[in-house]
Amino acid sequence: MNGANKLPTLSETQWEIMNLIWDRESSTVSEAWHVLKERRGVSRNTVQTQMVRLEEKGWLTHQEEEGGFRYLPTVGREETQESSVRRFVKMVFDGSTEGLLLTLLNGGQLSKSEAAQIRSLLDSQRKKK
């Protein structure tokens, strides 16, 4: 698999397609289109164009099957999320994860259970060090 940090960033639509493919482990254009048209009425041609672009950029690969291609991810979701968050924190918060967390906490974006989970993770990290 290619490293996510070596690949171009994903657009919102490309994230949506990649999440769909990660959930299913693979997808044809038709399968992806049927899901996405229910969500927001996207055209089949748009889905096909995006999947071809994702392959050109290195995010997807394909296998030939009867009647077309089955697309598979070249990078895992977790690796991609980690790489994307690192890029985001570097660009938006000048590398400060504290700035990101403070923004989430002060903006009310975290539920009580999410905040408790973060506290638990921080405590666990502190104990490891």
Score class of each variant (00 low, 15 high):
E56F: 00
W22K: 10
R119S: 05
K127L: 07
V92M: 12
K127M: 11
A116C: 07
K37F: 00
G3A: 12
V92R: 09
Q63D: 07
I118G: 05
N106Q: 07
T13M: 10
T49P: 03
K127Y: 04
T13A: 11
N2E: 13
G58R: 05
A116F: 04
E66C: 06
S83K: 11
S27R: 02
W15M: 06
M91S: 13
L20Y: 13
E31C: 03
K6D: 04
K37I: 01
S43E: 01
R44L: 04
L72H: 09
R44E: 10
V75L: 12
E55I: 04
L72W: 08
S30A: 15
W15N: 00
S120A: 15
T61H: 03
E114M: 15
L101S: 01
K128S: 11
R40C: 00
G58Q: 05
V52H: 00
T28S: 06
G58N: 06
E64S: 06
L122H: 15
L101M: 08
N106C: 05
V85P: 02
K90W: 15
Q14K: 08
G95L: 08
L104K: 04
S30C: 14
R40P: 01
Q14S: 05
Q63F: 11
E78C: 01
Q109E: 13
K57R: 03
L60V: 06
R119G: 05
F69Y: 14
L101Y: 01
E38I: 04
E98Y: 05
M1L: 14
V35Q: 09
N5H: 15
P8Q: 08
E16K: 08
G41Y: 06
D23E: 06
I21Q: 08
T74F: 03
E66S: 13
S11P: 11
F93H: 06
S84Q: 11
G76D: 13
R70L: 14
N2I: 11
R39L: 02
Q125A: 15
R126V: 12
E16S: 05
E16I: 01
E82S: 07
L122S: 13
K57F: 00
E38M: 12
D94V: 02
R77W: 07
R39P: 02
P73I: 03
E82M: 11
A115N: 11
M91V: 05
T28K: 00
V29D: 06
V52Q: 00
A116M: 10
W33E: 01
I21V: 13
S120R: 15
M1R: 14
T80Y: 04
M18N: 00
V85M: 07
E98Q: 05
T80G: 06
D23S: 07
F69P: 03
M51Y: 01
R87G: 14
K37E: 02
I118S: 08
L102F: 04
G3L: 09
L104W: 04
E55A: 09
L102C: 05
L54K: 01
R77I: 00
G41K: 09
Y71K: 12
R119N: 12
R126P: 03
F69D: 11
S84M: 11
T28C: 00
G107F: 04
N2Q: 14
K90E: 15
F88W: 10
R126E: 08
E79M: 08
W22P: 02
R119M: 02
L122T: 14
L104A: 13
L54I: 01
L36Q: 10
I21M: 09
L122E: 14
E82D: 11
I21P: 02
S120I: 12
E31T: 12
S84Y: 09
